[in-house]
Design a protein around this nucleic acid. Structure first.
Length: 540
RNA sequence: GGCCCCGUCGUCUAGAGGCCUAGGACACGGCCCUUUCAAGGCCGCGACACGGGUUCGAAUCCCGUCGGGGUCACCA
């Protein structure tokens, strides 16, 4: 029984990095298209000239590629390049008396809104066109008009594939803006025109657009377009119930920024200039904990105050990549935020998700983003992945963490590290736990508490000296031989393995935590192991 | 505040009137394994927001209350 093919799309505005909410929207669109054998298209909604950037657009594409959500249109649609199309249509609407130029200033609009608020009702703009003389007077004053669409006053209704039947009372119909005074179309207009021209059959988007749909329907009717199916997705929230990507992260940045200002005795203005962010933005942000920085601003500030993104709650897709998550695990987790295949099914490959996906199993209530569960998914995905996959993923991780010394390792070495550390949760853990193997011997830093506890208090120096003697003349430098020799020694001395392994661990890594010790020693080699033991012994 | 949507363990969810003494996963607690950190194994704790109906029977249907989210831009 074939399901009718769909054409859907992901249409981000390039104002920042892709975040989990956007990724989830993209994923659902992708799954729906793949499930039905349809097409998944990508469109760039760059009509906001002030906030759209080329860099953000490129990053968006890279994040999508990393996730593996490949789009089917080789030529991306950029709204900013389609002005003539929109303008022709808008002029036509004006000619047909369905739209008109409006000259209100921001101040006038604000005053009207205030009035509505005072009267405790919703602000609905429905002024209608001004006379030719009035228009001429405004033009003479240099006022640049917007174009407003006359949304017919009637009740609107549509059936949302997720939420069900939704209606808008007639008195909410307003004359909304379709062309801004800078000449760009608004979101409402561009989205309707492009969806129609691209042959979009299904629009899956965030819940914040639910009510916009009525405007889009009115526009479709005026323009003679078919109405696509709509599905509005829930909002992913932080554990505290606020919108994902908002408060959570901002809170952490704010706290560190304040510490930084205090300890460096710098003024907010200096922070702003170092971060190349508007001084006023930083000042009002610092002064009001309800205010938040935009993501690009946030990134700039983080950089200045020396906060690494690994320390922040991840919200951007790029954060997850940089911290060493597997995209397939992230996607599996994200899919379950608002969708369920039913029954007990949770862990799925991309192929399985494609096969099982359906809109009627998409939920209506807002999920909270639970990092612990994501971590568990990642751990399991990593444990189940073939080694070649993990090496690839590790390479990718390292490419966005260029400061890691593991960038010097070859694939065989990476595979070895991955195997040593199996059971790991994040690639970042493998990286950090293995760095000591790539650090020059003389740069190993001995953690004071480790030295105190393991070497001084527990007689570790004496053990190390004995061990050194044994290791120098070991026939074969393999984990197996090392294991056997050290265990034999421990037995002879009547010591638990811990009393013997820990001093070794501290000697070669500087800390009490490392991958399994004998494999680590094998990896390091005899010469370097002995050099480190000697260097450690010198601490006594 | 107006309008729209939502409400099952701490979290993500299964559940489409009797299969429910409500299932799974993560988290949490305990035990086991163990050279560190993990991973793993076993056991356990834990929810139908509240109040009215409808029905022989309600987590499932209806109404109300409360709670949460969205939206009211020349941003998307």
């Amino acid at each position: 029984m074939p399901t009718p093919a769909v054409v859907d799309r992901f249409a981000p505005s390039p104002t920042g990095y892709l975040h989990v909410g956007g990724a989830r929207t993209a994923l659902f669109n992708w799954l729906l298209a793949r499930h039905t054998g349809g097409r998944f298209l990508l469109r760039i909604e760059d009509t906001d000239l002030a906030r759209s950037t080329e860099q953000a657009m490129l990053q968006l594409l890279e994040d999508l590629r990393w996730l593996g959500l490949q789009w089917d249109n080789a030529d991306l649609v950029f709204q900013s390049r389609r002005l003539d199309v929109y303008n022709r249509l808008i002029d036509d609407l004006i000619a047909r008396g369905l739209a008109y130029k409006a000259y209100d200033t921001t101040e006038e609009l604000d005053a009207m809104r205030k009035e509505a608020e005072k009267a405790r009702r919703q602000f609905v703009y429905r002024r209608g066109p001004v006379s030719a003389e009035e228009a001429a007077r405004h033009e003479a004053q240099g006022r640049v008009p917007v174009v407003r669409f006359i949304m017919p006053v009637q009740e609107y209704r549509f059936t949302d594939e997720v939420l069900g039947e939704i209606a808008l009372p007639a008195d909410e119909a307003d004359h909304f803006v379709i062309r801004k005074s800078d000449g760009m179309p608004t979101y409402h207009f561009a989205v309707v025109v492009d969806d129609a021209e691209m042959g979009i059959t299904h629009v899956l988007r965030g819940q914040e657009h639910t009510k916009n749909t009525f405007r889009h329907i009115a526009l479709q009717e005026a323009l003679g377009y078919a109405r696509p199916a709509y599905a509005h997705l829930t909002t992913i929230q932080n554990p505290d119930g606020s919108k994902m990507g908002k408060r959570d992260r901002d809170k952490a940045v704010r706290q560190r920024a304040q510490e930084w200002l205090k300890s460096s005795k710098k003024a907010p203005a200096e922070l702003a200039s170092l971060a190349k962010v508007l001084e006023e933005r930083v000042a009002t942000w610092l002064a009001d904990s309800k205010k938040q920085l935009d993501i690009p601003e946030q990134l700039a500030v983080i950089h200045v105050i020396g906060l690494s993104s690994a320390e922040l709650p991840e919200i951007l897709i790029h954060d997850f990549r940089k911290n060493g998550y597997l995209p397939e695990a992230l996607l599996n987790f994200l899919a379950l935020l608002g969708w369920s295949p039913g029954g007990d099914r949770e862990r799925m490959s991309m192929g399985e998700m494609v096969q099982l996906f359906s809109l009627d199993r998409v939920g209506k209530s807002n999920p909270k983003f639970d990092r612990a569960k994501l971590l568990a998914f990642n751990t399991e995905a990593a444990a189940a992945a073939p080694i070649e996959r993990l090496v690839n993923a590790f390479r990718d991780y390292l490419s966005v963490n260029p400061e890691s010394p593991l960038n010097n390792a070859d694939d065989a070495a990476l595979a070895k590290l991955l195997q040593m550390k199996k059971g790991f949760r994040l690639l970042r853990e493998v990286d950090e736990a293995s760095r000591f193997l790539f650090t020059p011997d003389e740069q190993i830093v001995y953690a004071p508490d480790a030295v105190e506890k393991v070497l001084r208090k527990q007689n570790g120096f004496a053990v190390l000296k004995d061990l050194r003697g044994i290791l120098v003349s070991l026939h074969e430098w393999t984990a197996g031989e090392l294991d056997a020799a050290v265990k034999q020694y421990a037995e002879q001395k009547g010591l638990g393995l811990g009393k013997v392994a820990q001093p070794l661990r501290v000697a070669v890594s500087g800390t009490t935590i490392s991958p399994p010790i004998f494999e680590s020693l094998e990896f390091l080699g005899r010469e370097r192991t002995l050099a480190r033991i000697d260097r450690c012994l010198a601490l006594e």
